[in-house]
Amino acid sequence: MKRYDCLKAIAPRFGEELVVTNIGAVRHEWQALRPHPGNYHLQNLGLTSSMALGLALALPHRKVVAFDGDGSLLLNLGSLATIANQHPANLIHIVFDNECYESSRGAPTATAGRADLAAIARGAGFANVMTAKTLGEFEGGFLRALKSNDLHFILAKVEAGAGEVPAAALDSQENKYLFVRYIEKSENLKILTATPSRASSPR
């Protein structure tokens, strides 16, 4: 099973769900499959789960899906305990586990050895945890999570290798503005409120 095939299988199911992607090829794959202002592509290894938690807590009525990786989550294992304790019912935490640092030339991660991220998630306090080894298991697990009103952790055991897609033409500042403007419009919120300058205000 390849990560790109997993993403391709679930992309048609997305409507207005918010997505946070890990750094690396997954952002380009997802942006090609589902170009949408509700995609936030993180330029940091490790904090995908935490960004998704903050977003899910801020907008509890919106579904938030995190596309995390094994190397990223291993940097931030404590976030699993924080997420389980906060227990946002609108968050689906998906980890594509290719057992290597693929974007950094492929050295093995700890999951190539004895570590099992699904067992760690269970131990951190996640109630709904599954490991998907086939495309059918992954798609079925995702749809169950999407329909439910509860926190889910899905570990997708994938082969290394990226989909052949063009690089996503979004830099971080542009991505942030597009995402925030989309949230402002869809949620009727003011996030980037311009403060009137004293010099230009009428006397």
């Binding site: 946070v20 936030y40 940091n44 490790g46 904090l47 789960s49 935490s50 960004m51 998704a52 938690l53 903050g54 977003l55 899910a56 807590l57 801020a58 907008l59 919106r62 931030n76 404590g78 976030s79 305990a81 924080t82 942030k176 995402f179 925030v180 949230i183 402002e184 949620e187 919120l189 996030i191």
Partner: peptide, 19 residues
Amino acid sequence: VTREEEGIGVCAGAYLGGK
């Protein structure tokens, strides 16, 4: 949070959601 940099991520995500 369990580690401070985790908190920076949580805060940034909350900002994107209007907090």
